[in-house]
Amino acid sequence: MELTLALAIGVVFGAGIWLVLRPRTFQLITGLLLMSYAVNLFIFAMGRLWVDKPPITPTPDIDPAQFADPLPQALVLTAIVIGFATTALYLVMMIGARGLSGSDHVDGEEPRE
């Protein structure tokens, strides 16, 4: 499990970096999406992996060791929503830049080579 998740995060992150380094704005936005998946999973994994132990406490007196760590979950939840907002902002910048500069190159102009 641990190894699977670690590898998966690595692959998604690598694909994200590759895309972020590409010249087209659409590639950049997809790269950022992939990177945010990887980073969210990474932060989430800081609470270690728990199967079938969601942090839902039926009674006040419980053994905390029997539940998944809720803190990274709460952090990642906010991260997902904020990520959505920044993606939207980036998207608008992307189409706005394309309308202004006439190019979908990240630099706002086609390379001169």
Binding site: E2, L3, I9, G10, G14, A15, L21, A45, M46
Partner: peptide, 19 residues
């Protein structure tokens, strides 16, 4: 590709080490 692979490997290693 080198940077991407390096970055991916590094994060994978880090995740595994933590886990």
């Amino acid at each position: 590709l080198t940077i991407a692979t390096g970055g991916g490997l590094a994060l994978a290693a880090l995740t595994y080490a933590v886990l």
